[in-house]
Amino acid sequence: MTGTPIPEGTILRPDPATSPAYEAARLTGDATAEDLESIRKRTSVYVYEAPVRLWHWINAACILVLIVSGYFIGAPLPSMQIGEPVEQFVMGYIRFAHFAAGMILTAAFAGRIYWGLMGNHHARQLFYVPVWKARWWKEMFFELRWYAFLEREPKKYIGHNPLAQLAMFFFMTLGLSFMIVTGWALYAEGAGQGSLPDTAFGWVLGLVQNSQRLHTLHHLGMWAIVIFTMIHIYAAIREDIMSRQSMVSTMISGHRTFKDDRPD
């Protein structure tokens, strides 16, 4: 670090007229004027409101259940001889777990969409990618360079960094929607023609024509979600350690704290 050392305990207040404070965050469309005002005064921002955090962990739990049970629906466990079929319900329970988790996931996702409308500004970030903003692109490439070890130091972000936003949008907003739609279309097959799930989602089978294709699409979707989860958890922990802001604790408390008080 160069220049005069800043005395301990100083809160840095950049001059808005001369310093492009939090430019990256501001211009990617995320940080609001209030956020900026707030960050001038404090080192933590309230980002994820309680419903978002609750959804995050419910969603994570459902997805884990869906992945495990879904895998075993596709490739069942070895046959078991616990008893006669009337007493034994191994496959039945696995499918029940899958459907129950699928239904909770669907309801939670609907709730999350509602909160996207009602909640704070950050609650909306999951549902769009600001591709129309040049600065967003710039920061996305910066973030890519950071992950490719080409940047020495990451930037600070209030909500998701642009790369994370992109991944979340594709794998969660689109990915979960796809899993929910195909999942319910599969469920509609068992529920029967004329049932509510069939009325709502039966058209999907009509679209892909063959139920086997539907299974395959749903199944491939699972692997996309698995891959997202792996990357996501890795990135969350890594950033917790390497970035300049809080990560995991943010998803618990809702507050983003920063490890230093340099702007940007």
């Binding site: 046959s79 079929p85 191994v90």
Partner: peptide, 16 residues
């Protein structure tokens, strides 16, 4: 949906 072997499916009892 109407297979008479369905109880074995639900039980997880399969021809291996």
């Amino acid at each position: 949906d109407k297979c008479y072997r369905r109880p074995h499916f639900d039980a997880g009892q399969f021809v291996e």
